[in-house]
Design a protein around this nucleic acid. Structure first.
Lengths: 314, 314
DNA sequence: ACTTATTCATTAGATAATCTTATGGCTACA
DNA sequence: TGTAGCCATAAGATTATCTAATGAATAAGT
C-alpha cells in the first residue's frame, strides 16, 4: 500500500467538486464553507504541480488532467465508501432486506409481515423473492429463507420450519374424482417440482403406487409457487409442503385427498451473516419470525375431516 | 459520490496497519509516531462501532470485520494512489520508459543511447520493445517510436526519421552471386515483412521484375529485426529500411546490391502524451533524439562503392 | 451602462484534528 | 524474574482545516 498518501481530504473535496463543477455546490454537499473547498483544491493543485480546474466565465471546468484525476479518484472513493458502509454498525431503525423463494415469501411470510411492522415500526422490511442461492455477504440481503442451509464460516443458520409434503388438489377436482384409493391419482395430472426427493416417483415408491406407465399425465414446475398456482386452478395433484397451503386447506379451497406425506419432510432455513452491520435489526427479525413459525407448527385442520366432510359415504 | 466520508486519514493508517499487522511498523512506514496510529485506529473503530484489531499476545490480528474492511479499503486507496501518481508532476530526474519496435530500438536507438545517458545522468532510460501499438495513456510508456502516428487528441506526434527501403544482402551472398542485373535476385531467397507496401511484389512492379513464377523462394518475417537477422546469416535478400543497417553497410558486413529503393519510404514517428507528468523528462529525450536523427539523415556510404570496392577482381 | 446576484480567490483569525512525548500495562522469552 | 517489544492512554504542542469577511470577475436583468 501507498505509504505516502497526502491530502486525502483535498482529494475528496476535489472529487465532489468535479461532479458538481461548482465549488459552492460542493461546499454545500460537504457541509463546509466555499472557502474550505477552494483552499483544499488549491492545496491539491499545488501538491500535484498541475492545475485541475479552470474558469470559464462564471463556471469551473476540469482541465484534461483534472478529468483524468477525477475518474481515478472517484472509483477509489467509491470503494472506500462501500468498505466503510459494509462494516459500519447501523442502528436498530432502518431498512432490512429479506430474501426468500417466491413460495415462502408470498405464501407464508408476507401474510404475517404486518405483525412485525406493527411491533417494529422503525424497521422497514423489504422483500426480495427469487429462486437462486442468496449471497449474504454482498450486503444486499440481510436475512434469507432458503431450503438448504447457507454453509459458510461467517453465516448463521437456523431451521425455521419443517413441513410434511403431501398430495394436494383443488376442492373441485377432489369432488369430481372422488378419490377412493390412491390409484385414482392415476387419472389426474401429477404435478411436481424438479427436486427428485419430492417427486411423484418417490411418493409412488413409498406408498406402492406404480407410475411407470407412459400414459401418465405429468407436469413439472420450477417452483413450489407455480405448482400451487396450478393446483388452485384445478390442474391436478401437487406434492406440496403443507404449511404453504395451510390457509387454503383451512378454508377448504384446497384439499388433501389422503394424508400420506413423503417420508422426507421439507425444511426451510433462516440464514444471515454473523458480521452484518445490521445485526440488531436482523436479530429483531429473526426472533420474531422464529416465534411465528413455532406458533404454527401444528396443522390445525385434519385434512381427512375435509375429505370425509365432503364425502361422508366413505 | 459519497459526501460523508469521515476519517479518511484513519482509514489510510488502518490499511497500512492491516498489512503489517503491527502498529509500530505501520507508524514507521507512515513516518509518524506509534501513538498516532493507535489513536487513529481507535478513532476509526469508534466511528464504525466495530473493533477492527484484537490482541493475540503481543501481536495484533484483524477481526473478521477488520479483514472485510481492509480488503475494500486497500483497493480504494490503490486507485487513489494510482490516480494521484498519474497526474502528479514529476521532476526532471527519474525513470523514462521508451517504447519501440524491436528493430528500431535495438538497431538504431540502443547504440546511440549512451550519449543521452551521458548528457542526462539523472534520467534513467528504460527500453521496452514489442510490435503492437503502444498505449501512451496508461502511464507505462512515456515515449514511443512507431511506424504510424498515434492519433489521439492528447498525443503529440513528430516524424523522427524517414528512410528509403532498399534490397540488402550479406557480403558473402553478394560475392557468391555477383548480381550483374536485378534478374539475379530471382535465384535468391526473397525476404520481406508482412507489410504489402514494402513487399517484393511492390518492388518488382516498380522496377519491372516479374516475380510471379512459382519457383520463387520466398520468406516472410514478422518484423524488420527478424529480416535483418536472416540477411546477416546470409539467407537471402531483404527489403529493409536503410537506416537500420547503416553501420553494417559502412562496415561492409551487409551490401546493397543495387541502390534501388522503393518509391514509398518508411517513416518512424515519435509520440508521447501531452499531459504526462513526466513531460520535462520526455522533452529532454525528444529534443535529444530529434538531433540524433537529423545528424544521420544522409547515408554516408554509397553502396555501390562497397560493391566495387569489395570485389575488384569480379 | 449600471445594477445586482453569483461565483471563486484570498486573507486572518478561530477551531478542530492530529501529532509527539511520556508513561504504563501486558506478553513473550531468556 | 527480569527485560525487551508492543500497544494504550493522556496532556500538551503543533498543524491542518475551517469560517467569516472581503475582493474580483462575470453574467444577467433593467
Amino acid at each position: 500500500m501507498a505509504t505516502r498518501l497526502a491530502h486525502l481530504k483535498a482529494a475528496h473535496y476535489f472529487v465532489v467538486a468535479s461532479e458538481t463543477l461548482s465549488y459552492t455546490a460542493a461546499a454545500n454537499k460537504l457541509s463546509v464553507s466555499q472557502a474550505a473547498v477552494s483552499q483544499q483544491i488549491r492545496l491539491l493543485e499545488e501538491y500535484l504541480g498541475v492545475s485541475l480546474f479552470y474558469r470559464a466565465g462564471r463556471k469551473m471546468l476540469l482541465t484534461s488532467q483534472g478529468k483524468t484525476l477525477a475518474e481515478h479518484l472517484s472509483v477509489g472513493f467509491e470503494k472506500i465508501e462501500y468498505g466503510l458502509n459494509s462494516v459500519k454498525l447501523e442502528p436498530l431503525a432502518g431498512n432490512l432486506t429479506v430474501y426468500g423463494l417466491q413460495s415462502i415469501t408470498s405464501l407464508w411470510l408476507m401474510p404475517k409481515l404486518w405483525r412485525f411492522s406493527d411491533m417494529h415500526s422503525d424497521i422497514n422490511v423489504r422483500l426480495f423473492s427469487a429462486e437462486e442461492l442468496p449471497d449474504l455477504q454482498s450486503g444486499d440481503i440481510d436475512v434469507s429463507i432458503y431450503n438448504v442451509p447457507i454453509l459458510r464460516e461467517d453465516t448463521e443458520n437456523k431451521i425455521l420450519l419443517t413441513s410434511p409434503i403431501v398430495p394436494i388438489c383443488s376442492r373441485e377436482l377432489f369432488q369430481r374424482i372422488g378419490f377412493n384409493s390412491i390409484e385414482d391419482f392415476l387419472c389426474c395430472w401429477l404435478i411436481q417440482t424438479n427436486i427428485p426427493e419430492y417427486s411423484w416417483s418417490q411418493w409412488g415408491k413409498e406408498y406402492g403406487l406404480t407410475l411407470a406407465g407412459k400414459e401418465r399425465l405429468w407436469a413439472e414446475v420450477s417452483s413450489w409457487y407455480m405448482g400451487i398456482s396450478a393446483v388452485k386452478a384445478g390442474h391436478g395433484i401437487f406434492l406440496c409442503p403443507e404449511f404453504m397451503v395451510q390457509e387454503e386447506l383451512e378454508r377448504g379451497e384446497l384439499v388433501k385427498p389422503f394424508d400420506l406425506p413423503l417420508s422426507e419432510p421439507l425444511s426451510f432455513y433462516l440464514a444471515h451473516s454473523k458480521q452484518s452491520p445490521r445485526l440488531e435489526r436482523i436479530n429483531a427479525f429473526v426472533k420474531w419470525i422464529k416465534q411465528e413459525s413455532e406458533e404454527n407448527i401444528v396443522t390445525p385442520y385434519s385434512p381427512t375431516k375435509i375429505l370425509s366432510g365432503s364425502d361422508p359415504s366413505q
